[in-house]
Computed example of a mutant assay.
Amino acid sequence: MSSSLRRGTLAAAVIAFSIASLAACGAGNDAQTQEIKPDNAATSVGVIKVQNALVITQPDVKATGPAVISATLFNNGTTAQTLDSISVEGEGTAQLTPASGKGKLTVPAGGSIVLGGKGNASAALTSPSQTVLNGSLQKVTFSFSETGDVSLGAFVVPAESYFTKWGPSDIPSAPASPATSPSESATGSPSPSESASGKPGSTESSSSEATASASAEQ
């Protein structure tokens, strides 16, 4: 196993508990009392804190679907701030979608929001390149309306096991089975040689039946 994959496995094991704890309380109003010291990516600038930051890829390494950024964002200030963008170094800017599906993504004053997972806001990299490797560390920058840029290194993990519910909602389905070929669709139909072999329905069989009927009448 490569060192990068070992790092990814270790990171996934260490951070699972801290993400679960944060997700359970991330939607409340008292962000100060919700804070948990995580073992994974976390940082703060001014009144903004970012915890449990991850880049979660498709469960199948051969898949070409989107990757998502998962994190919990705290605002310990007295004024709400909007999250204007999230960028991953070398990958560009993620597509942000609030939990409501429209409008700006806002972190309330004295509150927090969760990115990733059912019913939460989302941040997706629609076409991640091959540099987003499982087990690697990617620089992720969160840009807020008042605080500005908040950057940190986030582990890249696949949407497997615990991380399935935090990973991409758009997962490519398995390739469809090949269509039946003309030769296969005709299998089972009598061939010309079979039609002349005396099997029911053949010309020879009909002639034999006619002869037998004539003999019976005589």
Results as ranks from 00 to 15, higher is better:
A109P: 04
N75I: 05
G110D: 04
C25P: 02
L96C: 04
S112H: 01
I36Y: 00
E35Q: 02
E89D: 11
T9K: 11
V45Q: 11
T9M: 13
I113W: 06
A27V: 10
D60W: 01
S44Y: 02
A24T: 08
T64V: 14
I19G: 00
G92I: 06
N75F: 14
T97E: 08
A67R: 04
I69P: 05
F74L: 12
G111N: 09
G101I: 03
T79V: 13
G77T: 13
L83F: 04
Q34A: 15
N40L: 09
S70Q: 07
E91T: 07
A23S: 05
Q32W: 11
L115K: 05
G65M: 14
V55P: 12
A20M: 00
N29F: 15
G101V: 01
I69A: 09
I48Q: 12
G77I: 14
L105P: 11
I56W: 01
A53Y: 02
S18K: 00
Q81P: 07
Q95M: 10
S21Q: 12
P38E: 10
E35R: 02
I113G: 07
T79N: 10
T82D: 15
D60P: 03
A11S: 13
G28C: 15
A23K: 01
A13M: 13
L22T: 00
G26K: 05
T78Y: 04
N29Y: 13
K104D: 15
G110M: 07
S21I: 00
I48V: 13
G103I: 11
G103C: 05
Q51E: 07
P59H: 08
V88E: 02
A16W: 00
A67S: 15
L105C: 04
L73I: 14
L96K: 02
T93Y: 08
G28N: 15
D84V: 15
K49I: 11
E89Y: 04
S70C: 03
G110Q: 08
A24K: 03
Q58L: 05
T79K: 11
F74N: 04
K102R: 14
V68A: 10
A80M: 05
E91N: 10
A109V: 10
A20Q: 00
A109G: 13
G90A: 09
I113H: 08
K102F: 14
T64C: 03
T64D: 11
P108Y: 01
L96Y: 02
F17L: 08
A94I: 10
P98T: 04
T33A: 14
P98G: 06
A67V: 12
N52M: 04
G92F: 00
E91P: 09
S70H: 05
A11C: 07
Q95P: 02
I113M: 05
T33W: 09
A24E: 12
A41K: 03
T79R: 12
K49C: 06
A94H: 05
A67E: 03
T72L: 06
A99C: 09
A20I: 00
N75R: 08
